[in-house]
Simulated scan of single mutants.
Amino acid sequence: MNIAPSILINGPGFSLREVKSVSEALEFLEEWPKNARSPFWYLARNALDGALTGSMPTDHARDAFEAFCKESGILLV
């Protein structure tokens, strides 16, 4: 399931990444340190899970992931 347009992120501990799909976004979230998981992380995770099951539109999940990235300071605009 593609995220369009893709989301560019960059931060400490990882190089520039282009997130193009719901599964890539979920994979990235799972790599995020447990002690740094904010409410934005949980909202993004729930929205992306919903997109996988069809209970959430993909564009809403994308918006939630982008909000997490922005809040975390890793979103490239």
Rank of each mutant, 00 (worst) to 15 (best):
H60F: 10
D63A: 13
A64I: 00
I9E: 00
P33I: 04
S15I: 00
P57A: 15
P5D: 11
E18I: 06
F68K: 00
A64H: 02
F68L: 00
P57H: 06
A64N: 04
I3R: 02
E66I: 00
E71R: 15
A67T: 15
N2F: 15
S72V: 00
F65N: 04
A4V: 15
S72W: 07
L76N: 07
A61K: 09
E71C: 01
K34R: 13
N46V: 14
A4K: 15
R45D: 11
P57V: 04
L52F: 11
T53V: 14
F28W: 04
N2I: 02
S72Y: 08
A51Y: 06
A25L: 00
V77C: 12
D63V: 06
K20S: 10
E31S: 14
R45H: 08
A36S: 15
N2K: 10
P12V: 13
A64V: 01
L48K: 03
A47E: 05
K34I: 12
F40Y: 10
N2A: 08
R17T: 06
A44M: 12
F65C: 02
F14G: 14
I74H: 03
A36V: 05
E30D: 11
L48G: 02
N2P: 12
I7C: 14
A25F: 02
S23L: 08
L8W: 10
E24P: 03
A64W: 01
S21D: 01
E24Q: 14
R45N: 10
G11Q: 02
V77G: 12
S55G: 09
F65Y: 07
D49R: 08
T58S: 10
G50H: 05
Y42Q: 12
L26K: 13
M56N: 10
A67G: 06
F14I: 08
G50W: 06
E66N: 05
G11M: 00
